[in-house]
Design a protein around this nucleic acid. Structure first.
Lengths: 102, 102
DNA sequence: CGATCCAATACCGTTTTGGTATGCTGCTCT
DNA sequence: AGAGCAGCATACCAAAACGGTATTGGATCG
């Protein structure tokens, strides 16, 4: 399982359509199809039903969608938190080193 | 950023030592070093200080560590939730389709 | 000053990923 | 009912990412 798979999954779930999701992700359609299949294989259960109109979430997919969004949000927050702490702490570090040097 | 990077980061943070983290992850040391560097580069700030004794977390690293653990937990929970919903829903789906067909 | 410990770099083979072209199935419209 | 269309899946290929081995660089300790 990869973060890309999770992002692809959310896009497909929200668009209800692999091609549209691919456009939104700025990649081609086949990779999205494959990653969704790989994701379902790894989880061990389908997440969508394939209809002639597109992809519709199964209950398993709905359950996964909630958590997937949480994961992506947590990811952004983690980056932002580290970055925020880093800006100050990099300054502090540099200052500390400089004062030890000078 | 990848889930592997997050897992490597947690291992290094907990071991305080790249080589030991690599052992625990069952991979070689250089890939761990590289992924940690890539992670720091992507976030835009260092997460560790390199000391002759190993790696020590910076405040940015501590902030990231908390969220990283949350992400990995959320990931496991997402899989488990989808799997649980899938077992029942796959049965339901099959039954629904069968009843609609027959 | 030599030995040791630990992270970083160089280089290579393998694996994974994405892209293009195409197939297949079911709807839709006349 | 047949032709065209919409949409996901598959085949095949090129590019990128990843991990492994060997080695270097830097700092501590005896």
């Amino acid at each position: 399982m990869s973060l890309a798979q999770i992002r692809y999954f959310v896009a497909v779930a929200e668009e209800g359509n692999v091609g549209r999701a691919a456009d939104r992700l700025h990649i081609a359609q086949p990779p999205v199809s494959r990653q969704i299949q790989a994701l379902e294989a790894e989880i061990g259960t389908p997440l969508f039903v394939r209809t002639p109109r597109g992809m519709r979430l199964l209950p398993s997919g709905e359950a996964f969608l909630h958590r997937a969004r949480r994961i992506l949000n947590a990811l952004e927050e983690a980056t932002a938190a580290a970055r925020a702490a880093g800006l100050t702490s990099a300054e502090v570090e540099r200052g500390t080193v400089a004062s030890r040097r000078g």
